[in-house]
Design a binder for these strands. Structure first.
Length: 287
DNA sequence: CTCCAGGCGCCTT
DNA sequence: AAGGCGCATGGA
């Protein structure tokens, strides 16, 4: 049965926290709903008490792509129950219960996070918006929505001069994005093949890409491939770890890595997202 | 004006 | 191993 609307019953799903938590950069809040593009589909999502209402521009027969993107079949309580039962995690989970991890397209995720270094989330959104509007394939959208574009294909970006990328305000990240796009377009980097690899091997593959270090690699491993123990440590998570878990003195790099690999359990990546969102959105601590 | 933002690469100790 | 610096850009 084809339709351009569908109601997904959900429980404990905080759509706003999820779509605004710095995993994906193309979602915009309009009125009481969220508008974005998944693959080549324009999508509007509206959260109600116990459901998410999805609307597309064109009729959809099989909604598994959205189910997969939103990870609707995940048992969140089962994930939360694996977190360490300590004060920081209780605070972080209590602050935004229902925060989820999405399952994004690897190329879009990789490209977006290459553009993320030393940028605030709002600015990453601006760069991605420019990139999509200039080089993304047009996508069908409701008539009053203006032009909407998919995220640009790697092959399209690979064929651009660096100046066209710099014109999207990405600065020194332009050659990194270009190099990554060429690796993918030339078939030297098979992103689809990474999902079958063990985490360390998939990470090593990503670390070969210019402009991709441990943090960006782990973002892609977590947000696109769903490796449950990928654990990106950015300035916010570092702040959480140092303030909440190592208040006495700064841990060594090796001590910190050992800690993040063991302490947070089999869904450490999820725990990381709760810590990240908590540090970014909690009330400013009084001195 | 200075400082810094979901880092990385390269260069020093 | 660990720290400093430059890299574009824009906002506070």
């Amino acid at each position: 049965m084809n339709a351009n609307e569908r109601v997904f019953p959900v429980r404990n799903y905080d759509l706003s926290a999820t779509l605004s938590s710095g995993q994906a950069f193309r979602w915009r809040h309009h009125d009481d709903s969220w508008v974005g593009v998944i693959g080549s589909r324009w999508v509007r999502l509206q959260a109600t008490n116990a459901s998410i209402i999805a609307q597309t521009a064109e009729p959809v027969g099989d909604w598994r792509w959205l189910n997969h993107y939103l990870q609707l079949d995940l048992d969140l309580d089962a994930v939360l129950s694996t977190f360490p039962n300590d004060d920081p995690m209780r605070s972080a989970v209590g602050h935004s219960r229902g925060l989820r991890l999405l399952r994004q397209d690897p190329w879009e995720c990789l490209a977006s996070f290459i553009l993320s270094s030393t940028k605030q989330i709002v600015q990453i959104q601006q760069i991605v918006t420019l990139l999509c509007s200039r080089f993304g394939d047009p996508v069908d959208a409701p008539p009053d929505r203006g032009l909407v574009n998919a995220f640009p294909l790697a092959a399209r970006i690979a064929a651009l001069p660096e100046s066209d990328l710099r014109a999207c305000k990405m600065g020194f990240r332009a050659p990194y994005l270009l190099a990554a796009a060429r690796l993918v377009a030339d078939g030297k980097l098979n992103l689809a093949a990474l999902e079958k690899l063990p985490l360390p091997e998939a990470r090593e593959e990503l670390l070969q890409i210019p402009g991709v270090g441990r943090k960006i690699a782990d973002c892609v491993l977590l947000f696109a491939y769903g490796f449950p123990t990928a654990f990106p440590v950015d300035v916010w998570v570092m702040k959480a770890l140092c303030e909440l878990y190592f208040p006495k003195r700064r841990p060594t790099r090796q001590r910190l890595e050992r800690f993040t690999e063991t302490y947070f359990g089999p869904h450490a990546g999820y725990a990381q997202q709760y810590l990240f969102h908590y540090m970014r959105t909690r009330p400013v601590p009084r001195p």
